[in-house]
C-alpha cells in the first residue's frame, strides 16, 4: 500500500455531540441506578440522597432518550448509513470475527481482513446498544410514569429487564471504552469521537480498508 497522507473526518460535529450527551447520561444513569439496586448511599448522597438521585436518574433518562432521537431526526441520512453499515456483514466481517480482529493475545493475525467504517466487533456492539437502549427506555418510563397503575407482575418484570439490560450494557460499554481509549492498537480512534472527529488517513486505510476506498478526497 502506498503512502497515504492526510486526515479522515470520521465523525461530524453533531455525531460527536450526541455521543457525548449519551455517554454522560449513561454514566449518571448507571451510577444512580446501581446505587438504587445495591443501596449504595455513598453514590446517592452525591446526588442529594436516594429520592433526589432518583429524580436525577429519571430526568437524565429523558435526556438519554431525547438526545439520540433529535440526532436521528436531524441526521436521518447519516443515521441510515450507520444502520446500513452495522447491519451489513460481509465475508470479511466473518473472517474478522473468527480471528477476533487480532485483539485476542493468543490468536496471531498477519493482516486482518479489510473492514468497513466499523469493524465487525463494533457493528455487533452498535446493534446491542440499540437493542439495550430500547429495552431500558421501554421499561424505565413505565416504572416512572405508570408506577401507580401498572399491576405488580408487569412492574417487577420491567424492573428485572431494566436492571439486567443495564448490567449487560455497562459491561459492553466498559469493553468498548477499553478498546477505544486504552488498547494501544485502537486507542488512536479515541480522539476522533471525543475531540475533533478526525483520524489519521493512513490508520484508517489500514483499519477500515473497505470504507476508506469509498471516501471522497475533498482537498
Amino acid at each position: 500500500m502506498s503512502e497515504i497522507k492526510g486526515k479522515v473526518l470520521k465523525h461530524d460535529q453533531q455525531t460527536r455531540m450526541m455521543h457525548w450527551v449519551h455517554l454522560i447520561c449513561f454514566i449518571i444513569l448507571g451510577l444512580t441506578g446501581i446505587a438504587f439496586y445495591w443501596d449504595i448511599n455513598i453514590i446517592s448522597n452525591i446526588f442529594g440522597g436516594p429520592a433526589n438521585a432518583s429524580l436525577v436518574h429519571r430526568w437524565t433518562g429523558v435526556l438519554f432518550l431525547t438526545g439520540p432521537t433529535i440526532y436521528i431526526l436531524l441526521n436521518f441520512e447519516r443515521f441510515s448509513r450507520f444502520i446500513d453499515t452495522i447491519s451489513t456483514f460481509t465475508k470479511n466481517d466473518i473472517a474478522w470475527l473468527k480471528t477476533m480482529g487480532g485483539y485476542v493475545p493468543f490468536i496471531k493475525v498477519e493482516h486482518a481482513p479489510p473492514q468497513d467504517k466499523y469493524n465487525a466487533g463494533q457493528k455487533i456492539l452498535g446493534g446491542l446498544i440499540i437493542i439495550g437502549c430500547l429495552l431500558i427506555i421501554l421499561t424505565g418510563f413505565p416504572m416512572w410514569l405508570w408506577r401507580y397503575t401498572l399491576p405488580a407482575a408487569f412492574l417487577s418484570m420491567c424492573y428485572n429487564i431494566h436492571f439486567w439490560t443495564a448490567i449487560i450494557m455497562i459491561l459492553l460499554v466498559g469493553g468498548h471504552f477499553f478498546l477505544a481509549a486504552i488498547h494501544p492498537k485502537s486507542r488512536v480512534e479515541f480522539a476522533s469521537m471525543m475531540m475533533d472527529g478526525y483520524v489519521d488517513a493512513e490508520i484508517t486505510a489500514h483499519h477500515n480498508e473497505s470504507w476508506f476506498n469509498e471516501l471522497q478526497k475533498v482537498e
Binding site: G6, K7, L9, I83, D84, L215, Q216, E219
Partner: peptide
Amino acid sequence: MSIFKEKEGFTRRQFLKGSAI
C-alpha cells in the same frame, strides 16, 4: 495534506434500512 470525507446522501438501500429500524 488531504482531507477525506464520506459521500453525502444515502442510497435507496440505506434509506430503507434507516426507515425500517
